[in-house]
């Protein structure tokens, strides 16, 4: 825009800079539009399938709950729906955040050494190992989780072995416990942790580690002051990619837990599809979104890597 104005002024002022040819201005304007043209398809997609439904969902969450699908809903801006939802289901919200948080921490502890080994120690096995990390995705989420149901079942191999260990009670069980749900979450979301970690560790310059050693840092110290800070973008990306979908998951709680382990996803599922309480389901969805947003923002701030998000 300024270029066009400048060109016009240049043409009008004798002795000023020579006028810029019209084609050049047009070309420059087209170049300036390029980023917006590139954004257009994605932007339209998000507008249609994210912004519009979100607004609609927000509207639904404020409907009068005495309505029904048959009688229709009336918009009464019933903010009380949110209070009702929190009052009735705060344990599920807490459980979602708690289970997802624990699962994310376990994924990080398992995934970091794994990603480091693949990036720096695997040599020619690197590609094969990466394929192994992704391999579970070739089976559907549902089947994988059902498989865990039989692995963790009372007459399954894991419980059988554990019960043989001294001091483990004979009625010890895993299925239908919080541990089983967390296990399922860890298993299902581990690749989302490993892949971003791998990407950032793979970029880590080995010469920096040598330099740290040369400057009196023991291996542990080198990890603390060089490796870890330089892989923080991967840590942040991995934890977000793990935590956010895990917090909204309901399949693991449904298949590996009992109603006592149900997460907010299960409640939303039943409110939408069983009880047909659309306003409450919508309100719970927004509460989940808000919970995740608050946790993510405070986490990103603590991790000190705003620029990566």
């Amino acid at each position: 825009m300024t270029a066009a104005v400048g060109a016009a002024a240049g043409a009008a002022t004798p002795g000023g800079p020579p006028p810029v040819p019209v084609e050049a201005v047009a070309g420059r304007r087209r170049r300036r539009l390029t980023p917006y043209l590139l954004l257009l398809p994605g932007g339209l997609w998000l507008l249609l399938f994210f912004v519009v439904p979100s607004v609609q969902l927000a509207g639904t969450s404020l409907y009068d709950r005495s309505g029904s699908l048959e009688t229709g809903y009336s918009q009464t801006f019933a903010f009380v729906n949110y209070l009702d939802a929190i009052g009735a289901y705060w344990p599920h919200l807490l459980r979602s955040a708690g289970y997802a948080g624990i699962a994310t921490v376990i994924c990080l502890v398992l995934g970091y050494p794994l990603a480091y080994a693949i990036a720096h120690k695997a040599g020619r096995w690197r590609t094969l190992l990466l394929v192994c990390v992704i391999a579970p995705f070739f089976t559907t989420f549902l089947v994988r989780t059902l498989a865990w149901k039989s692995i963790l079942s009372d007459n399954g191999p894991v419980v059988g072995v554990l019960r043989a260990v001294p001091f483990v009670p004979d009625d010890f069980r895993l299925l239908a416990t919080p541990a089983a749900v967390v296990c399922g979450l860890v298993y299902n979301f581990l690749p989302f942790m490993v892949l971003p970690l791998y990407a950032s560790l793979e970029r880590l310059d080995g010469r920096l580690l040598e330099a740290a050693g040369d400057l009196y840092a023991k291996p542990v110290t080198t990890f603390r002051w060089v490796t870890l800070p330089l892989s923080m973008p991967g840590v942040v990306a991995g934890t977000l990619l793990t935590f956010i979908p895990a917090a909204g998951d309901y399949i693991n709680a449904e298949l590996l837990g009992t109603p006592n382990q149900y997460m907010v996803g299960n409640v939303i599922d039943s409110a939408f599809l069983v009880r047909l309480d659309y306003p409450q389901a919508a309100a719970l969805s927004f509460l989940l979104m808000a919970t995740i947003l608050v946790m993510v923002l405070s986490y990103v701030r603590a991790a000190g890597t705003e620029e990566v998000v």
């Binding site: 920096l208 040598e210 330099a211 740290a212 050693g213 040369d214 400057l215 009196y216 023991k218 060089v226």
Partner: peptide, 20 residues
């Protein structure tokens, strides 16, 4: 002797400055 125990220091070809 491990590198971190040696009283020598290196100026690397790539400099290897810590970017963070």
């Amino acid at each position: 002797l491990r590198p971190y125990r040696r009283p020598v220091n290196t100026v690397f070809q790539s400099y290897a400055l810590f970017p963070h």
